[in-house]
Write a protein that binds this DNA or RNA. Structure first.
Lengths: 226, 226
DNA sequence: TGTACTGTTAAGGCTTTGCTAAGGATCGAG
DNA sequence: CTCGATCCTTAGCAAAGCCTTAACAGTACA
């Protein structure tokens, strides 16, 4: 159904949640520490993260910000009862929903379902269609007006990532993080170059764009042509 | 509905406000002094604070700063008519809205509703709507009457910030701090210029305004057109 | 009527972006 | 192991767009 990462130091809760979500058909990964969790999130690009704010090795809020810096993945934060102020802070920091421990399995499932629905998860591998443009992740093939495009690996990944976030502005830094797997280093100029190539192969230029719209000062988005 | 703390020394007003909000289903706590109020806010972590700036034991502005030092809770300040300069100061000190005494119960309820709505969990990326104006943060796109507006980055940020605080008067200094990320430097004239451009693109002028209303001596607010 | 605040316009400088080309890395075939 | 082809990154210049400053006009309020 969806890939979920659980970052939680208490083994009991971690396993309980993992079991519950796995039973619902999700692909579950768990981490007991913040650092391991960040690695997992970056490496896996999951569809959802469940994050305990009370981790031993790093303040949960910091981890949340780090995740937000590189990804838009939905995050549900969990806090112990009595730490309610943290909830407000975390929602401001970009969390999508929250749970107060101890929580029931039903509660957990309900929240997960709601957040995933809100995020409208695109099942992995199913083709995305934007106007006359079709991107088939499974076949690693993109076509325009029925014509198969000759894309390099990076070009395809870039196009697919944009297509999976149709209509949403994506920063170059986020593309470096998500497509290039370089959350910190890397030159944003590289993205520019690949975008230019992509545009050429899509039969458009920056001045005359059908699909790829640059949003000056922010990033790029792919849109359904008018 | 929500926990509200009222800090007000005049018994009549305090009880009137408490009664009105309790009738709307809120959990109301009252304090007659600044010190007691601060205790209550810290101990209770309420969803909203209504603070009279004219307290006998401590300058209300000081209390506001103390609250801000420990909490992000929305604060509505109340001042007696004639103390308008305080409004500007309090907005700069982090107040979310203000009331001028004497105020009607309807006014109070409206402000409370507005502030609570604003503070409630807004799913990220969900567009803000004000009349015929739609601001979509994820797409970084604003439209008026279904027509997409061509906004520069700063113009968009400015419009979005105002829209996220609909009905609330925002000082230029606060805009410089929040939108320009310049809490101290920067010229307020710059804000004027951008506002002018925004008005033009919204099809209005300062004289004939539908959305952007300037509040002389204080700042600017965006409102739902009549 | 004067003063302080606000509205508007124009212009210059600066940042961001678009695109081309070249060098080097990677990968597969033979 | 070597060659060849493809691809990715870096560098650099040109162009476009935006922000700020400045100057002046208009407006509310004492």
């Amino acid at each position: 159904m969806a890939a979920v990462v659980i970052i939680e130091d208490e083994q009991r809760i971690r396993e309980l949640a993992a079991k519950a979500l796995a039973a619902r058909g999700h692909e579950v990964h768990t981490s007991a520490t913040a650092m391991d969790g960040l690695q997992t999130v970056i490496g896996l690009s999951p569809d959802l993260v469940i994050l305990d704010l009370g981790l031993p090795d790093l303040d949960g809020m910091e981890l949340l910000k780090m995740i937000r810096a590189v990804s838009d993945v939905p995050v549900i934060v969990a806090t112990a009862r009595g730490e309610e102020p943290d909830i407000v802070l975390s929602l401001n920091a970009g969390a999508d929903d929250h749970l107060v421990k101890p929580f029931s399995v039903e509660q957990l499932e309900a929240r997960v379902r709601a957040v995933l629905r809100r995020a409208s998860v695109t099942p992995r591998g199913s083709p995305v269609t934007i106007g006359a443009l079709v991107i088939d992740g499974a076949a690693r093939e993109a076509s325009l007006d029925g014509e198969v495009l000759e894309l390099s690996p990076k070009e395809f990944d870039l196009l697919r990532y944009l297509a999976e976030h149709t209509g949403e502005v994506i920063t170059k830094r986020r593309l470096l993080a998500e497509v290039w797997r370089q959350p910190y280093g890397g030159s944003e100029k590289t993205v520019d170059v690949h975008l230019s190539w992509l545009r050429r192969k899509l039969g458009e230029s920056a001045a005359e764009s059908r699909y790829l719209q640059t949003v000056r000062g922010v990033g790029i988005k792919i849109v359904e042509p008018a």
